[in-house]
Design a protein around this nucleic acid. Structure first.
Lengths: 207, 207
DNA sequence: ATATTAAACGACATTGGTGTCGTTTTCAAT
DNA sequence: ATTGAAAACGACACCAATGTCGTTTAATAT
């Protein structure tokens, strides 16, 4: 009856595997990563690995969830600083983020979203859509808070600004991954974007 | 000595194959397309196909070149209309373009750029970089012409505006491919983008 | 110590695709 | 018609990766 090891042990082991898998996906991307790679990286045997994850898409999706928790938190508005300041701060952070894109899952994610049948089956796996909605709502909430506080006086529908926001960031990531950060000049693009945002949001107290 | 068929015949045959391949890549993307698919679609045998293209990356790159000729032409400025009018016209065209993204090579291209070793080997295959530079220069030339003619009075460095331009369009395409055009609301995003451009370029005679 | 149980192992059959190569077909020159 | 060249064919050997399953190992309860 009694299991050989504790639940905690299995949880730990699984997290080890996820970490190893993440390293593999960062190095090789999604398409070229194999279960064998994860076995090698983690030291786990074939049968062992398959007892935790029955195929690589499953594994990748678990890595994503493991990762995602952090991302949304970015757009929790704080009351300490003006929202516009928080926004520019966020953009500054993104610069570092995107410049270091080769050590992130960005490439693997893009590949996964483009190629995996799981990712592309919106009916049964609404993951991508939900993800998009989550980040959209986080940013929209942020802007709406700014409106309510009288800090922003947007010229365009906030919803539209948000969509535009996301497209730009996604495009910048994609291009930077492909061409390198000095080619795409991440910093100046983010400056141009900040300029656009200012023209759209008209934050008070900004010249 | 004499070849069995004319040069013209071989050229024709090759174009047939490229067309078939293009259909395959539009339907299946890059990663999931196989030489077998192209054989089926074109009716050509295995050996025959391989005598034209020795592997699928080669085939894809030829499809791209075949396709690319059109793309750059978009940004040949005409003297008939104000450049700003041409720009808004171009954006209007892009809307249709991006909304019909499922019948284009956009997905396959993105996959190829992300995953193919040929695409990612910048040293030996500078194709991507050249492509980016070409489109960049086309748009930059367009803007500079506007400056010279006194039609644009940009607030930011035109180079930066162009980089920003490309990122946004790429991001919009990617997101739209993944989520569908009603989800990303292509039209309003392009409107927002137009607004940004206006704020950056300050076209004369536009309120 | 011993028994029990499931975690971990790794050999194996299977799959899906690749690229080659000897053969067949077909066209055009004679 | 006959013949020679090369285009088109398709069987085949090969490879890389998958997922399974019977066996081994090791932690815990007794």
């Amino acid at each position: 009856m009694s299991p050989k090891v504790s639940e905690a042990y299995k949880k730990e082991k699984k997290i080890d595997l996820l970490r190893a898998a993440k390293r593999v996906f960062i190095n090789k991307g999604y398409t070229h990563a194999t279960m064998q790679d994860v076995m090698d990286e983690s030291g786990m045997s074939r049968g062992g690995l398959y007892s935790y994850f029955n195929h690589i898409d499953h594994l990748f999706m678990e890595v994503l969830q493991f990762e995602d928790q952090e991302d949304i938190l970015f757009f929790e508005p704080s009351d300490e600083y003006p929202l516009w300041t928080q926004l520019t701060e966020w953009l500054r952070l993104q610069q570092k983020n995107i410049e270091g894109i080769n050590n992130s899952l960005v490439r693997a994610k893009a590949e996964f979203f483009l190629t995996s049948n799981y990712a592309r089956d919106k009916e049964n796996y609404p993951y991508i859509t939900e993800r998009y909605d989550n980040i959209k709502n986080a940013i929209k909430g942020f802007i709406q808070k700014g409106i309510k506080q009288g800090e922003f006086q947007p010229i365009l529908d906030p919803e539209h600004i948000v969509l535009y926001f996301i497209s730009f960031i996604d495009g910048l990531m994609l291009d930077t991954f492909q061409l390198g950060s000095q080619k795409t000049d991440v910093k100046v693009q983010l400056t141009a974007f900040q300029f656009s945002l200012k023209a759209m949001l008209l934050p008070v107290g900004e010249k």
